[in-house]
Design a protein around this nucleic acid. Structure first.
Lengths: 339, 339
DNA sequence: AACGCTAATCTAAACGTTTCGAATGTGTCA
DNA sequence: TGACACATTCGAAACGTTTAGATTAGCGTT
């Protein structure tokens, strides 16, 4: 900017005024300055600007795994939204690890991000103190956090799973296996509750041996399914509480020589692009990823626009059961098998 | 830092020296400073540091679409690599649009990223001038760029598709449909060449009506497949040059009432987690995503470590044909069907 | 002709670091 | 004792912006 000012024979203040439109500058000088900018190929240094202004027009976004298609989609939507608003996005993957998450968040704060969208992992950590210090607005995504009172966008997980399990019950299933993620994050808790309540509402027992938990990965789903299928009284249906794990479920079913939906019905959380292309077409609970991403972005953008003091807003969206053909009605024969 | 210095009754220079280890500071002052840092909860401001140092320890990464599983995986790997190296990653999606890409790159440069990894889209744009001005190192990912001479990691697309098509030929297929992306980016060109050469090597004609192009999206694959299947002499196999488009292909086959592989064989570029879970298990060309991401990161990290003057390095990796069961051998019956 | 008002421009301080060179103190050696 | 080397510490100038307040010039009023 100094060079531009010199070349245009004006002060840097005038250049700045023109660039930001913060003061009127005469047509003559404007012309000279613009010419100088072109000649020199000047680009305003956003770092210096950030330092002075105290804002970086950058937000931080942390998710557990970007390869989980739910997060892939949400990240994509959020990215677009902030792009439109002129913000850059720093993406961090926390790998389902609390220490990593804390480290990433610290990294982002050091870099003076203007706001944070966090799909948190695990409880505790520095999240709470950050929200309370209230220097940067934080929006929780997908997962609430015990004792952390801030904007959030989540799904009505309980209801969504309730509906899915109820659907299976209506098909005639009585023993329904359930594979959950680690239970200390809110969606897993809600989904689990939905499972229990659906069974109870149908007057069915909640057999603990039918509930298995894993750490969100394919291999965990595989192992859990193997265990479920080797029960002497094995379930006739399995619901997997997240997407990568259901891949493991399908592989386990295949490896054990069974087939879906003939021998065993399968449904899972989170829809994905391939779900209705192959056989079986998987019955899923679809999250409104577009809405989730946009709402989260809007909540944060609203705070960034200055609305700091409004009380925390919690948005709860509804999931949608996508019924396809991976779950079959249970007739007399199937009853016998499962009995 | 000023507050810390005051609280510890030292100068800011000393605090800085301690923090960076750039000079020895006495145990006594160290103690006082560390105490003050804890008391105040001081965090070093990375923006101010960047301004002074001329480096942000942040890199920019642009990809066409993060929802394309190939890019999802590569982004994930790159993200991890830079995370380990203490760099943050700014992610931008260019949506297969050249103007968007230019805008994003400008945004990243304004923010003084130390380096750039670009899966470019379209030819031209500012990429060339940026590489030539050589202020920030650039690594091209997946796609070369005409006239832009810089580090790059790409696949031997030609060979990969050659192998895949040759495989189909060996199964007895004679009319093989080919769905390509827009041809002005290098991988599409290479893949196309591989297709033609495989046919020629087998002494088969290259029928132009069997080649369709789309813009990488599911819908484009759908439309292209519909066209191919409505040819009076329709192909017995279809190869789709990218992953989202093959979803369209499968849907079109389903909607038209055919089935794969009985009526039509399908193979595609880019493997994905579900490829061997459902029926049919899709035969794909798998890219070594892990290696691609790591190599790209390494090339850039090497430049960032100071190795600026080495000549551009171009890494060409090999794809791997994952043979599953979506392509069937063509016997007499199938010949009749396709004739 | 002196005055005040407005518009345009500039000067200089700040943002929070790093770092160069100077200053201070301490011990060693002739 | 004076000179010198060495280890610590500090003062102050940068990095490239923004912006408050000062300055200047032009113009209409009285």
């Amino acid at each position: 900017m100094l060079h531009v000012a010199e070349a245009a024979r004006v002060s840097v203040a005038t250049v700045s005024a023109l660039l930001n439109g913060t003061a009127t500058v005469s047509p003559e000088l404007s012309q000279r300055i613009e010419q100088a900018i072109r000649d020199i190929g000047y680009k305003r240094n956003a770092i210096a600007r950030s330092l002075k202004m105290g804002t970086t027009r950058t937000i931080g976004l942390t998710v557990p795994h970007i390869t989980n298609p739910f997060f892939t989609d949400v990240v994509s939507v959020i990215q677009q939204a902030f792009d439109r608003a002129g913000y850059a996005v720093m993406l961090c993957c926390t790998d389902e690890d609390l220490n990593t998450q804390d480290e990433q968040i610290r990294l982002l704060l050091d870099r003076m991000v203007d706001g944070l969208i966090v799909a948190r992992v695990g409880d505790g950590g520095i999240l709470k103190s950050i929200v309370e210090d209230a220097n940067v607005p934080v929006v929780l995504l997908d997962r609430l956090c015990e004792g952390v009172d801030t904007d959030a966008v989540v799904l009505d997980n309980q209801r969504a799973v309730f509906d899915a399990i109820t659907y299976l019950v209506h098909l005639g299933h009585r023993r329904i296996g359930y594979i959950t993620g680690t239970s200390d994050i809110s969606p897993m808790h809600g989904r689990m509750t939905g499972y229990r309540e659906a069974l109870q509402a149908a007057g069915l027992p909640v057999a603990e041996e039918l509930v298995r938990s894993g750490n969100f990965h394919e291999i965990d789903g595989y192992n859990a399914t193997m265990q479920l299928l080797s029960l002497h009284d094995r379930p006739s249906a399995i619901f997997s509480a997240n997407n990568p794990m259901v891949i493991g479920t399908m592989k386990a079913i295949r490896d054990i020589g069974l087939s879906c939906p003939e021998d065993i019905s399968v449904a899972c959380f989170d829809d994905f692009p391939w779900s209705d292309v192959f056989v079986p077409q998987l019955t899923t609970v679809a999250q409104p990823v577009q809405a989730i991403g946009e709402q989260a972005a809007n909540l944060l953008l609203d705070r960034l626009a200055g609305n700091r003091d409004a009380p925390p807003r919690k948005l709860v969206l509804k999931g949608r059961l996508m019924i396809r053909n991976s779950c079959r009605p249970l007739g007399a024969v199937a009853q016998t098998v499962s009995a």
